[in-house]
Design a protein around this nucleic acid. Structure first.
Lengths: 263, 263
DNA sequence: TTTAATCTTGACTAATAGTCACGAGCTATG
DNA sequence: CATAGCTCGTGACTATTAGTCAAGATTAAA
């Protein structure tokens, strides 16, 4: 092993350490509690060293967000090749995303942070582009599914277009996770157990979200309709098969480790 | 006029000044650009004086958010007494909310800020409760509409409950406005005109959102279905009648002034 | 006019983001 | 092995921030 590559490896190892520690800090203390000073102290490096890796704290956040999203996408992708109708594959992929969200409650909170415009604007151009590229990739995959559905005749678009449908499904998911703040924490103090929203989402938020998605797809008249096919049974089946590993983690009360992408 | 009440009035006037100036600062510079030091300099009072009114900057933000939400609710309420089927009234109220959002692009951005948990946690208990109470009020109104629809038979719930429907409609609205960052600004530099999301929401995001809501309501089988009733025509009609004043403002390129609630 | 109460102030502390000149220690070469 | 040169980690530094509070200014009451 050459000297250059050893140094390079050391650099990447340190980047890993920065990201892993930041991930933990964000989980424990939220966006406001996450500071570069504290981070530097925790990893036992000087502040300047951290800035050799990332140009601002928002970039660290976005890098983690990016990697987590990538990880989630790979889980969603498990549904792609299943021998099922298009709509069923879509439902299975969403249920995968939902399981993932429970295993990494950090992700949707970071997504919300990223949506605050003045925070997003601090992110470096490079990471913004990567972020955008990833979103685009996930849309293209979705678009392909829609195309297959149109070809098979299970879906007929009346005035809708695949981008609108994509946006709506994304909205429902983002909206739900933004409304239901519970589960995991962005900040340890002052949880919301007394809030009204929490009180009306008594029963099963998971099932409610799934129903909402299905109701929307029914409205699109995407066959088979939920009256013709038991999508809940499908999700339960998927939890036991395609996502058996994740279901096991959930049962054990485990969470996802953060893993950076460029190792 | 007694001396006490004159002092009281002066205090409230200053509170107005603080809120109006903060509103403008938030519009121009976003959450991160909004600082108490700058605010104090702008209104020509010492920093300590500002803290006599609000315990932290998040409280100022939330007070503005609260007042704006109240203002929006009064607009949504215009649809309540219309002589129309329940679903139509719902659609009209949503279109009112959408028009309002355009006239006060600050509102949905502040909503997103409030959803960042570590920011929300800095808000005083009192304002949190007011916030919650308002949400509850808007839900109760929605619940009433649902009850009427159930009584009239235009809607039949199969496994859904009104809270789920409320959450979903809210989610779609929040999700959409969070995805479409354009329009107004949270921070003047570095807009997103080059982002992928912007590029797929080429045509008319407004119409897309309206279609999504209707598709979901169709999925619920809420009569009349969008195939039986022209909801777009209804919205256009509403823009010209119930919301004629707002439509005129939009046409003139005006925005909503901020008005505090406790005058 | 004097006293008492109230309100406003800005200097102060503590924390924060981000920079950069310095020098420790590593590398290459004779 | 010595030394020159260079890389890269460092933490003191600047500038900005939130939030506090003793002291002084202003006003009211006697």
């Amino acid at each position: 092993m050459s000297i250059a590559s050893r140094k390079e490896r050391e650099f990447k190892d340190r980047e890993q350490l920065i990201l892993k520690t930041s991930f933990k800090m964000l989980l424990d203390e939220g966006y406001i509690g996450f500071t570069i000073d504290k981070l530097a102290k925790k990893i036992d490096y000087a502040k300047g060293t951290v800035y050799k890796h990332f140009s601002c704290k928002e970039d660290i956040l976005m890098k983690i967000l990016l990697d987590s999203s990538e990880q989630r996408m790979s889980i969603i992708d498990r549904a792609v090749d299943l021998d099922l109708p298009e709509r069923s594959r879509l439902i299975v992929s969403f249920s995968g995303a939902r399981i993932y969200n429970k295993l990494n409650p950090n992700l949707h909170k970071m997504l919300l942070i990223a949506r605050v415009e003045s925070i997003w604007n601090k992110v470096s151009r490079e990471i913004k582009l990567t972020h955008d590229e990833m979103l685009q990739r996930s849309y293209l995959r979705f678009d392909q599914l829609i195309a297959t559905a149109l070809a098979s005749g299970s879906l007929v678009l009346n005035g809708h277009c695949s981008a609108d449908i994509f946006l709506t499904l994304l909205s429902i998911n983002i909206g739900y996770s933004s409304l239901l703040r519970g589960g995991g924490s962005d900040n340890l103090q002052g949880k919301f157990h007394d809030s009204f929203i929490d009180s009306i989402v008594i029963s099963d938020a998971d099932r409610a979200l799934s129903m909402s998605l299905n109701t929307y797809l029914d409205g699109l008249n995407w066959r088979p309709l939920s009256s013709e096919y038991d999508y809940f049974a499908l999700e339960e089946e998927a939890a036991k098969t395609v996502y058996s590993d994740l279901t096991a983690m959930l049962a054990k009360g485990e969470f996802f480790e953060y893993v950076s992408n460029n190792l």
